[in-house]
Amino acid sequence: MSTRFFIYLIVLTIVAITGMVKYKKLTTPFRLLVALILITIISEVSSRFFAYRIRNSSPPYHFYAPIQLLLYAAIYFRLLKNARTKTFILYGTPVLVIFSMLNSIFLQDLYTFPSNSIITISFVLIVLSLLYFREMLQYPLQISLVRQSTFWFNCAVLVFFCTTFFIYCFYNYFLIYHIKTKLISTINYIMTIAYYSVLTFAMLTDNKSNGSKQ
């Protein structure tokens, strides 16, 4: 097990433990986030297992991508108020899940990393986080932004998925031209650690009783 992966796993475990300890006090979107983190841990561990056994870590990500999309969609469905956006999530999510499955069957098989699905999911999450920022401006709360769990969560989602989108757009390009670089994986690694650290902070600030969003 590489040091990088070990640190990543520790960070993920910290988020999961924080979420589980605070589970009763968390609002519904953050409870869903705890479930997502647990699934992420399972996916990451199994990807390592596959890498060790068949020298390919991609298969678990083909299952993880649609589940991740469903859970993020459920989180934003609970967070957003706008009826049109909710309808968009309700009808758009099944379409994207089907796309992700078709991608795994026809375009990027189980032994290829599902970058098409990741790019699509990232794009949708960027749009949802921007829409949520717009709603936050429409209905400002009388508590400081620093104490608003959804602000931290949304910032983390926006920055992380912008980076993911950007990285995987290049990933396909680099793959086509067989260009190997450590830079991409380093940036991706740093962003992932930062993302889960911010999520830990968001979970710590989230509290049902202090008026956080249900």
């Binding site: 920022f133 936050m136 401006l137 400002p140 709360l141 009388q142 932004l145 910032c155 926006l158 920055v159």
Partner: peptide
């Protein structure tokens, strides 16, 4: 820039 702009706008709205 976006996040800074958002924070400032949010404070103004508050």
């Amino acid at each position: 820039v976006f996040i800074v702009f958002f924070v400032l706008s949010y404070r103004k709205k508050q």
